[in-house]
Design a protein around this nucleic acid. Structure first.
Lengths: 188, 188
DNA sequence: GTCTATATTTCGATAGAC
DNA sequence: GTCTATCGAAATATAGAC
């Protein structure tokens, strides 16, 4: 991997572990095994580097979610596959955690990819719910947008519960809890 | 308010807005209108002050939740009252945000009240769900612990969605989404 | 109890040699 | 492109006067 990529990867790791406020240029350089001058040659500073790191993570997250939600099968089945896929639960969501970072939310350039990721994810899930209604799998009484928001929120909040408990089980409970509720809302 | 209380209140405000890593002793002193020496006279340092602030917030959150969940009425009704109560949605949850703070999670003395708050909340909500089952309001097929985790997670994740969108509506959608699903799980 | 002065380390970036 | 040297400011405390 070249120097530029190593800097981006180090930044991704540190943003995930410590957030933007908690990540210093020095720590990025040390993790990447790169000197100061090298970092400032490739990037104007911490912000530009963070943007590159967030973009890369957002793209990965989006591609993975899209893949899970696009496999053949029913709507609930695909949502379950997405929610149940293997995750680093105790580390939390690398994009979701950025919403708690005041400097990220204050900088439009950093905030933009975070906003886009969640807007896209809610829209994508709402489509899957609508497909379930159209296929006669889910009740027409369901509100796709509200249900999609509830699903994404359960995922994000599940990370919060797991980190608070230092235990992945509350996350798994939350996922199984919402899936059970969703199953009960099947068309009957 | 005395100096000690002003320091705790300032710390509460700043922990909510900027987290632990993003809050400096200097900013606390300035917001409280207090000098350095004064702060270090009342508290050994940032950590001890943060613990006092977190304790106070955790107590308030717990008392408010307990009050909402204890009013007369059905289980779903009380859960709805709790979820729909007025909130500073875009500011997020003052306790939940701390789970994203690496230095909070690394310090047992700061982590403890966060863990206790969520453990208590999940347990309390599971009790309400169980009461709903016993009263014949909710289906006996429901898993109280999983449902409770899903409810708390939706709330916490709703804050994430709202902050990502810089708009309270995704939060409100998530709340209405889970309540609709819960309503569909009524005993029939 | 509260204040100011000081100390040490880190932050985030720039300068300039190679 | 990468390195080391340096910079001004901020973080987090401690010291000691009042």
């Amino acid at each position: 991997m070249n120097t530029r990529d190593r800097l981006i990867e180090s930044t991704r790791t540190l943003l995930w572990e410590r957030g933007y406020v908690g990540t210093s240029p020095k720590s990025i350089q040390q993790l990447a095994g790169v000197g100061q001058g090298s970092m400032y040659h490739h990037f104007s500073g911490k912000e530009e580097l963070a943007r590159a790191a967030i973009d890369r993570t957002a793209e990965e997250i989006g591609a993975a979610a899209d893949a899970q939600l696009s496999v053949p099968g029913g709507a609930v089945e695909r949502i379950a596959a997405y929610l149940r896929r293997e995750r680093d639960v105790l580390k939390g969501c690398p994009i979701g955690r950025l919403t708690q970072d005041p400097d990220v939310m204050a900088a439009p350039v950093l905030r933009e990819p975070v906003e886009e990721t969640f807007t896209w994810l809610r829209t994508r899930l709402a489509s899957v719910v609508t497909e379930g209604v159209d296929a006669g799998e889910l009740s027409p009484a369901i509100d796709p947008a509200a249900t999609a928001s509830a699903i994404v929120a359960t995922l994000q909040g599940g990370y919060v519960l797991a980190r608070a408990a230092d235990d992945a089980r509350p996350f798994e409970q939350a996922i199984e809890g919402i899936l059970a509720l969703l199953g009960a809302y099947s068309a009957r």
